[in-house]
Protein backbone atom coordinates (compact mmCIF):
# COMPACT_ATOMS: atom_id res chain seq x y z
CA UNK A 1 0.00 0.00 0.00
CA UNK A 2 2.70 2.43 1.03
CA UNK A 3 4.68 1.50 -2.07
CA UNK A 4 1.76 2.27 -4.32
CA UNK A 5 1.26 5.62 -2.62
CA UNK A 6 4.94 6.36 -3.12
CA UNK A 7 4.65 5.37 -6.76
CA UNK A 8 1.69 7.69 -7.25
CA UNK A 9 3.51 10.43 -5.39
CA UNK A 10 6.53 10.11 -7.65
CA UNK A 11 4.46 9.73 -10.79
CA UNK A 12 2.66 12.96 -10.07
CA UNK A 13 6.00 14.70 -10.52
CA UNK A 14 5.22 14.25 -14.17
CA UNK A 15 1.74 15.69 -14.02
CA UNK A 16 1.90 18.95 -15.95
CA UNK A 17 2.25 22.03 -13.83
CA UNK A 18 -0.61 24.43 -13.55
CA UNK A 19 -0.75 27.19 -16.15
CA UNK A 20 1.37 30.18 -15.29
CA UNK A 21 -1.62 32.46 -14.92
CA UNK A 22 -2.54 30.62 -11.72
CA UNK A 23 0.88 30.90 -10.12
CA UNK A 24 1.24 34.50 -11.23
CA UNK A 25 -2.17 35.23 -9.72
CA UNK A 26 -1.26 33.47 -6.49
CA UNK A 27 1.93 35.49 -6.19
CA UNK A 28 0.09 38.71 -6.94
CA UNK A 29 -2.51 37.88 -4.30
CA UNK A 30 0.14 37.43 -1.62
CA UNK A 31 1.77 40.71 -2.56
CA UNK A 32 0.73 43.44 -0.09
CA UNK A 33 0.49 45.97 -2.92
CA UNK A 34 -1.93 43.99 -5.08
CA UNK A 35 -5.17 45.75 -5.93
CA UNK A 36 -8.31 44.86 -7.85
CA UNK A 37 -7.11 46.61 -10.99
CA UNK A 38 -3.83 44.60 -11.09
CA UNK A 39 -5.65 41.32 -10.69
CA UNK A 40 -8.30 42.23 -13.23
CA UNK A 41 -5.64 43.29 -15.69
CA UNK A 42 -3.75 40.01 -15.26
CA UNK A 43 -6.83 37.90 -15.88
CA UNK A 44 -8.00 40.03 -18.77
CA UNK A 45 -4.78 39.29 -20.64
CA UNK A 46 -6.13 35.77 -21.11
CA UNK A 47 -9.19 36.41 -23.29
CA UNK A 48 -10.60 32.93 -23.20
CA UNK A 49 -10.14 32.59 -19.43
CA UNK A 50 -11.83 35.90 -18.72
CA UNK A 51 -14.74 35.04 -21.00
CA UNK A 52 -15.29 31.76 -19.16
CA UNK A 53 -14.87 33.31 -15.72
CA UNK A 54 -17.60 35.83 -16.55
CA UNK A 55 -19.90 33.05 -17.74
CA UNK A 56 -19.34 31.12 -14.52
CA UNK A 57 -19.86 34.06 -12.15
CA UNK A 58 -23.06 35.03 -13.94
CA UNK A 59 -24.62 31.63 -13.38
CA UNK A 60 -27.47 31.64 -10.83
CA UNK A 61 -25.46 29.89 -8.08
CA UNK A 62 -23.54 33.08 -7.41
CA UNK A 63 -26.71 35.04 -6.68
CA UNK A 64 -25.40 38.30 -8.07
CA UNK A 65 -28.04 40.99 -8.34
CA UNK A 66 -26.95 42.21 -11.75
CA UNK A 67 -25.02 40.87 -14.69
CA UNK A 68 -21.26 41.22 -14.35
CA UNK A 69 -19.60 42.26 -17.59
CA UNK A 70 -15.99 42.77 -16.52
CA UNK A 71 -13.34 40.94 -14.53
CA UNK A 72 -12.74 43.92 -12.27
CA UNK A 73 -16.42 43.94 -11.27
CA UNK A 74 -16.31 40.18 -10.73
CA UNK A 75 -13.32 40.62 -8.40
CA UNK A 76 -15.16 43.39 -6.53
CA UNK A 77 -18.29 41.28 -6.06
CA UNK A 78 -16.81 37.89 -5.29
CA UNK A 79 -13.30 38.67 -4.06
CA UNK A 80 -9.84 37.79 -5.38
CA UNK A 81 -9.77 34.26 -4.00
CA UNK A 82 -13.02 33.17 -5.56
CA UNK A 83 -11.95 34.43 -8.99
CA UNK A 84 -8.51 32.85 -8.64
CA UNK A 85 -10.13 29.54 -7.65
CA UNK A 86 -12.50 29.63 -10.61
CA UNK A 87 -9.49 30.17 -12.87
CA UNK A 88 -7.73 27.25 -11.19
CA UNK A 89 -10.81 25.04 -11.69
CA UNK A 90 -10.98 26.04 -15.38
CA UNK A 91 -7.24 25.40 -15.81
CA UNK A 92 -7.42 21.94 -14.29
CA UNK A 93 -10.34 20.97 -16.52
CA UNK A 94 -8.46 22.29 -19.52
CA UNK A 95 -5.31 20.44 -18.51
CA UNK A 96 -6.97 17.07 -18.21
CA UNK A 97 -9.50 17.41 -21.03
CA UNK A 98 -6.78 16.90 -23.59
CA UNK A 99 -5.92 13.48 -22.19
CA UNK A 100 -7.34 10.52 -23.96
CA UNK A 101 -9.49 8.25 -21.87
CA UNK A 102 -11.23 5.03 -22.78
CA UNK A 103 -14.77 4.83 -24.04
CA UNK A 104 -16.18 3.80 -20.66
CA UNK A 105 -14.64 6.85 -19.08
CA UNK A 106 -15.25 9.88 -21.25
CA UNK A 107 -13.67 13.13 -20.06
CA UNK A 108 -16.82 15.10 -20.92
CA UNK A 109 -19.03 12.96 -18.67
CA UNK A 110 -16.41 12.96 -15.96
CA UNK A 111 -16.18 16.75 -16.02
CA UNK A 112 -19.93 17.16 -16.19
CA UNK A 113 -20.19 15.21 -12.95
CA UNK A 114 -17.45 17.29 -11.35
CA UNK A 115 -19.02 20.55 -12.52
CA UNK A 116 -22.34 19.29 -11.14
CA UNK A 117 -20.72 18.66 -7.75
CA UNK A 118 -19.02 22.09 -7.93
CA UNK A 119 -22.33 23.83 -8.65
CA UNK A 120 -24.23 22.07 -5.86
CA UNK A 121 -21.39 22.51 -3.34
CA UNK A 122 -21.16 26.23 -4.13
CA UNK A 123 -24.92 26.61 -3.84
CA UNK A 124 -24.85 24.91 -0.42
CA UNK A 125 -22.07 27.31 0.60
CA UNK A 126 -24.28 30.24 -0.46
CA UNK A 127 -27.37 28.93 1.25
CA UNK A 128 -25.57 28.29 4.54
CA UNK A 129 -23.61 31.56 4.24
CA UNK A 130 -20.38 29.81 5.14
CA UNK A 131 -17.29 31.78 6.12
CA UNK A 132 -15.05 30.76 3.17
CA UNK A 133 -17.35 30.09 0.20
CA UNK A 134 -14.52 30.60 -2.31
CA UNK A 135 -13.22 27.06 -1.82
CA UNK A 136 -16.60 25.41 -2.45
CA UNK A 137 -16.84 25.44 -6.25
CA UNK A 138 -13.17 24.49 -6.59
CA UNK A 139 -13.45 21.54 -4.19
CA UNK A 140 -16.43 20.17 -6.09
CA UNK A 141 -14.55 20.42 -9.38
CA UNK A 142 -11.46 18.76 -7.87
CA UNK A 143 -13.08 16.06 -5.70
CA UNK A 144 -12.66 13.16 -8.15
CA UNK A 145 -9.44 14.25 -9.88
CA UNK A 146 -7.69 11.26 -8.30
CA UNK A 147 -9.60 9.05 -10.77
CA UNK A 148 -7.75 10.76 -13.63
CA UNK A 149 -4.45 10.45 -11.76
CA UNK A 150 -5.00 6.72 -11.24
CA UNK A 151 -6.10 6.29 -14.83
CA UNK A 152 -2.96 8.06 -16.05
CA UNK A 153 -0.74 5.88 -13.92
CA UNK A 154 -2.43 2.51 -14.18
CA UNK A 155 -4.09 2.64 -17.63
CA UNK A 156 -4.89 -1.01 -18.34
CA UNK A 157 -5.43 -1.86 -14.73
CA UNK A 158 -7.92 0.94 -14.42
CA UNK A 159 -10.01 -0.74 -17.09
CA UNK A 160 -10.14 -3.72 -14.75
CA UNK A 161 -11.37 -1.38 -12.03
CA UNK A 162 -14.23 -0.25 -14.26
CA UNK A 163 -15.05 -3.84 -15.14
CA UNK A 164 -14.95 -4.94 -11.50
CA UNK A 165 -17.31 -2.16 -10.45
CA UNK A 166 -19.76 -3.12 -13.16
CA UNK A 167 -19.67 -6.84 -12.38
CA UNK A 168 -19.89 -6.45 -8.61
CA UNK A 169 -22.30 -3.53 -8.84
CA UNK A 170 -20.11 -1.49 -6.54
CA UNK A 171 -18.73 2.04 -6.62
CA UNK A 172 -15.39 2.73 -8.33
CA UNK A 173 -13.77 3.57 -5.01
CA UNK A 174 -14.30 0.03 -3.71
CA UNK A 175 -13.08 -1.45 -7.00
CA UNK A 176 -9.98 0.77 -6.89
CA UNK A 177 -9.09 -0.40 -3.38
CA UNK A 178 -9.60 -4.02 -4.42
CA UNK A 179 -7.68 -3.94 -7.71
CA UNK A 180 -5.10 -1.18 -7.21
CA UNK A 181 -4.73 -1.00 -3.45
CA UNK A 182 -5.19 2.77 -3.54
CA UNK A 183 -8.30 4.82 -4.21
CA UNK A 184 -8.94 8.08 -5.98
CA UNK A 185 -9.45 10.10 -2.78
CA UNK A 186 -5.92 9.23 -1.65
CA UNK A 187 -4.50 9.88 -5.13
CA UNK A 188 -6.36 13.21 -5.32
CA UNK A 189 -4.99 14.25 -1.94
CA UNK A 190 -1.45 13.56 -3.14
CA UNK A 191 -2.03 15.77 -6.17
CA UNK A 192 -3.56 18.49 -3.97
CA UNK A 193 -0.47 18.40 -1.79
CA UNK A 194 1.82 18.67 -4.81
CA UNK A 195 -0.15 21.57 -6.16
CA UNK A 196 -0.21 23.21 -2.71
CA UNK A 197 -3.98 23.61 -2.75
CA UNK A 198 -5.55 25.07 0.40
CA UNK A 199 -5.79 22.59 3.29
CA UNK A 200 -9.58 22.63 3.40
CA UNK A 201 -9.73 21.75 -0.31
CA UNK A 202 -7.26 18.89 0.20
CA UNK A 203 -9.36 17.55 3.09
CA UNK A 204 -12.58 17.73 1.09
CA UNK A 205 -10.90 15.80 -1.74
CA UNK A 206 -9.47 13.21 0.65
CA UNK A 207 -12.64 12.60 2.68
CA UNK A 208 -15.42 13.28 0.17
CA UNK A 209 -16.39 9.64 0.20
CA UNK A 210 -16.52 9.21 4.00
CA UNK A 211 -18.30 12.55 4.36
CA UNK A 212 -16.33 13.53 7.44
CA UNK A 213 -12.69 14.25 8.14
CA UNK A 214 -13.32 13.80 11.84
CA UNK A 215 -13.25 17.49 12.72
CA UNK A 216 -16.71 18.77 11.77
CA UNK A 217 -15.55 20.29 8.51
CA UNK A 218 -18.45 21.88 6.57
CA UNK A 219 -16.70 21.81 3.19
CA UNK A 220 -16.04 18.05 3.34
CA UNK A 221 -19.67 17.45 4.32
CA UNK A 222 -20.90 19.72 1.51
CA UNK A 223 -18.82 17.94 -1.16
CA UNK A 224 -19.93 14.55 0.17
CA UNK A 225 -23.64 15.43 -0.05
CA UNK A 226 -23.20 17.19 -3.40
CA UNK A 227 -21.45 14.16 -4.89
CA UNK A 228 -24.42 12.00 -3.90
CA UNK A 229 -26.89 14.63 -5.12
CA UNK A 230 -25.13 15.07 -8.49
CA UNK A 231 -25.32 11.31 -9.03
CA UNK A 232 -29.02 11.17 -8.18
CA UNK A 233 -29.80 14.26 -10.28
CA UNK A 234 -27.96 12.76 -13.26
CA UNK A 235 -25.50 15.62 -13.47
CA UNK A 236 -22.88 13.92 -15.66
CA UNK A 237 -21.50 10.46 -14.99
CA UNK A 238 -19.08 9.62 -12.19
CA UNK A 239 -17.85 6.37 -13.74
CA UNK A 240 -20.23 4.03 -11.91
CA UNK A 241 -24.00 3.88 -11.53
CA UNK A 242 -24.27 3.55 -7.77
CA UNK A 243 -25.18 5.99 -5.05
CA UNK A 244 -23.82 5.43 -1.56
CA UNK A 245 -25.68 6.12 1.66
CA UNK A 246 -24.91 9.66 2.85
CA UNK A 247 -23.05 9.95 6.14
CA UNK A 248 -25.67 11.05 8.73
CA UNK A 249 -23.01 13.25 10.34
CA UNK A 250 -22.80 15.29 7.11
CA UNK A 251 -26.55 15.98 7.13
CA UNK A 252 -26.34 16.81 10.82
CA UNK A 253 -23.45 19.23 10.31
CA UNK A 254 -24.91 21.04 7.27
CA UNK A 255 -28.49 21.34 8.60
CA UNK A 256 -29.81 22.27 5.17
CA UNK A 257 -33.20 24.02 5.23
CA UNK A 258 -36.25 21.75 4.80
CA UNK A 259 -37.07 20.87 1.17
CA UNK A 260 -33.72 22.29 0.08
CA UNK A 261 -33.42 20.11 -3.02
CA UNK A 262 -37.01 20.25 -4.27
CA UNK A 263 -36.93 24.04 -3.82
CA UNK A 264 -33.59 24.54 -5.57
CA UNK A 265 -33.77 21.94 -8.34
CA UNK A 266 -34.62 24.64 -10.91
CA UNK A 267 -31.67 26.87 -9.97
CA UNK A 268 -29.30 23.91 -9.72
CA UNK A 269 -30.28 22.48 -13.10
CA UNK A 270 -30.06 25.87 -14.84
CA UNK A 271 -26.67 26.59 -13.22
CA UNK A 272 -25.41 23.15 -14.11
CA UNK A 273 -26.47 23.47 -17.77
CA UNK A 274 -25.03 26.97 -18.12
CA UNK A 275 -21.76 26.14 -16.41
CA UNK A 276 -21.27 22.96 -18.42
CA UNK A 277 -21.92 24.84 -21.66
CA UNK A 278 -19.58 27.69 -20.86
CA UNK A 279 -16.75 25.56 -19.49
CA UNK A 280 -16.84 22.55 -21.79
CA UNK A 281 -18.12 24.36 -24.88
CA UNK A 282 -20.08 21.28 -25.73
CA UNK A 283 -23.62 21.03 -27.03
Amino acid sequence: MINIEKRIYDAIEEVPTLPTIYSVLSDTLISPNANAADIAHLISTDQSASFKVLKVVNSPIYHLSSRIESISLAVLHLGFNEIRNIILALSVINLFSKKKLIAAFRPVDFWKHSIGVGVITRYIGNTLQVARPENYFLSGIMHDIGKLVLFENFGDQYEKVLQYSEERKCQLIDAEKEILGIDHSAAGAILAEKWKLPDSVLKAMKYHHEGSSGDKDMLTAAVHISDIAARMLEFGFAGDDYVQKPNPEAWELLKLPPHFFTKSIGVLTASFDETVNSILNCD
Binding site: I228, A229, M232, L233, E234, P246, W251, L256, P258, H259, F260, F261, T262, S264, I265, T269
Partner: peptide, 13 residues
Amino acid sequence: PMEEDLFNASVER
Protein backbone atom coordinates in the same frame (compact mmCIF):
# COMPACT_ATOMS: atom_id res chain seq x y z
CA PRO B 1 -36.42 13.39 5.35
CA MET B 2 -33.47 15.15 3.62
CA GLU B 3 -32.81 12.09 1.49
CA GLU B 4 -36.52 11.82 0.72
CA ASP B 5 -36.43 15.44 -0.49
CA LEU B 6 -33.37 14.76 -2.63
CA PHE B 7 -35.12 11.69 -4.01
CA ASN B 8 -38.18 13.75 -4.96
CA ALA B 9 -36.02 16.39 -6.65
CA SER B 10 -34.30 13.58 -8.58
CA VAL B 11 -37.65 12.18 -9.73
CA GLU B 12 -38.51 15.63 -11.11
CA ARG B 13 -35.16 15.81 -12.87
